[in-house]
Amino acid sequence: MTEDSFDTSLRKFLKTVGVTSQQRIEQAVREARARGQLPPALRARMTLRVEELGLEHVVEGEIRLDEA
Rank of each mutant, 00 (worst) to 15 (best):
V29E: 01
P39Q: 04
V19P: 00
L48Y: 13
T47G: 01
R11L: 10
R45A: 13
Q23R: 12
E60T: 15
T8W: 03
L42G: 03
G36Y: 06
E26H: 06
R30N: 11
A41W: 13
Q23D: 10
L55N: 01
G54D: 12
V59S: 13
P39T: 03
R30I: 02
E52G: 12
V59N: 04
T20Y: 04
L42D: 02
E26P: 00
V59C: 06
E52L: 13
V58L: 08
D4M: 14
M1K: 07
E31K: 14
M1V: 08
E31I: 07
R43A: 15
E26F: 03
V50L: 15
A34T: 03
E51S: 14
H57F: 11
E51K: 11
D66T: 06
A32L: 10
F13W: 12
G18E: 09
M46V: 13
R49S: 13
I25T: 06
A44Y: 02
Q23A: 11
E31R: 11
K15H: 09
T2W: 00
L53P: 00
K12N: 08
K15R: 11
F6Q: 07
L55R: 01
G36M: 04
L10R: 14
Q27P: 00
F13H: 12
F6A: 10
F13Q: 08
R64V: 13
E3Q: 08
P39V: 02
A32K: 10
G54N: 12
R35N: 14
L38E: 05
E3N: 09
E31F: 02
T8S: 07
D7Q: 10
L65T: 03
F13R: 07
T2R: 08
H57Y: 12
M1S: 07
M46T: 12
Q22T: 11
V29K: 09
D66S: 13
A32G: 05
Q23G: 10
P40E: 15
V58F: 00
E56Y: 02
L53S: 06
V19Y: 04
L10D: 01
F6E: 11
D66N: 07
Q27I: 03
D7I: 07
R30Q: 15
V50D: 05
R45G: 10
F13N: 07
G18W: 00
V17E: 07
D4P: 02
Q37Y: 01
A32H: 02
M46Q: 10
H57K: 15
L10E: 04
L42V: 02
L55I: 14
T47N: 02
R11I: 01
F13D: 06
T47F: 01
D4K: 12
P39M: 03
V19T: 15
R33S: 10
Q22R: 11
E56F: 00
A41C: 05
R64W: 09
L53M: 15
T47V: 15
G36W: 06
P40K: 14
A68C: 01
G36S: 07
Q27C: 03
K12L: 09
Q22Y: 08
I63F: 03
S21D: 07
Q27T: 15
R24G: 03
V29M: 02
L53F: 09
V59Y: 02
E56K: 15
T16M: 06
A68D: 12
L55E: 11
M46R: 06
A34V: 02
A32T: 04
R30E: 13
T2Y: 02
E26I: 00
V19G: 00
L65W: 05
V29R: 06
S5F: 10
R11S: 12
T20Q: 14
R64C: 03
